[in-house]
Design a protein around this nucleic acid. Structure first.
Length: 224
DNA sequence: CATTGATCATAC
DNA sequence: GTATGATCAATG
């Protein structure tokens, strides 16, 4: 029994836990942690991430920082198809829509979070019930120069639109490897943003997401 | 059938 | 509402 693991002291200890849960099904791990397994994710969409967080001793809660702040590591689950390609985009963080003056790629929340990521591949096919989905071997990834450049380009293009009051013109087609999409409880959620001519407007909250091609390439690097 | 836009649960 | 964890499901 793993009982509510505490925060790992270092990366080696963290990776030992990662390897220990690799090959288990969600059901097996959930049983060890005394967690109930849903029959689908129509409601508990973040269940997998929370299960893995608990198993690895990530600091819980909704802090806008890394999951392992002492280690500088962000944790992400990555749902894969039978062909080992990502089935979903990867949420990174909220997109700032106000107070954006002085914000640069270097000090952005996106760069901070993506500097070092512990990816946990998991089976994502909807036809597999959650209890039977397998946990894969997690691995640490740090973006290379090329990836950083692509991310920075997309971040700057999107943040320029936000700064210039064009947030309403942003759609999910913009950005080569990273996009901005709505991120809210529902369509009624509104937040402040910059409108035309610098006026204040209300708009739907947005988040940054990594495109599937980008995360797919991260996986390919593992085998090259 | 892949993608975009919408949505669900939870903590504070 | 903000922010975490994400997947769902309507659409073209």
């Amino acid at each position: 029994m793993l009982n509510k693991p505490s925060s790992p002291a270092n990366e080696t200890a963290l990776m030992a836990r990662v390897t220990a849960i690799a090959g288990l099904t969600f059901g097996e791990l959930a049983e060890q942690l005394n967690v109930a397994v849903p029959n689908n994710f129509k409601r508990e969409k973040g269940w997998t991430g929370q299960l893995i967080e608990l198993a690895l001793g990530a600091s819980a809660g909704s802090k806008p920082q890394q999951d392992f702040p002492d280690l500088g590591i962000e944790l992400k689950t990555l749902p894969l198809s039978y062909n080992n390609t990502p089935l979903e985009t990867t949420y990174v963080c909220y997109a700032p829509l106000t107070g954006v003056s002085g914000l640069t790629w270097e000090n952005s929340n996106v760069k901070n979070k993506l500097q070092k990521v512990l990816w946990i591949p998991v089976q994502g096919e909807r036809e597999i019930v959650p209890a039977d989905k397998l946990i894969g071997q997690g691995f640490i990834w740090q973006p290379n120069a090329s990836e950083l450049s692509l991310l920075q380009q997309d971040w700057e293009e999107l943040m320029d639109m936000i700064c210039l009051g064009h947030v309403e013109k942003i759609n999910a087609r913009i950005g080569e490897v990273m996009q901005i999409r709505p991120k809210a409880a529902n369509g009624k959620a509104l937040t402040d943003a910059i409108g035309e001519n610098g006026s204040k407007i209300l708009t739907r909250p947005r988040g940054f997401y990594l495109r599937k091609n980008f995360t797919s390439n991260i996986l390919k690097q593992l085998f090259s």
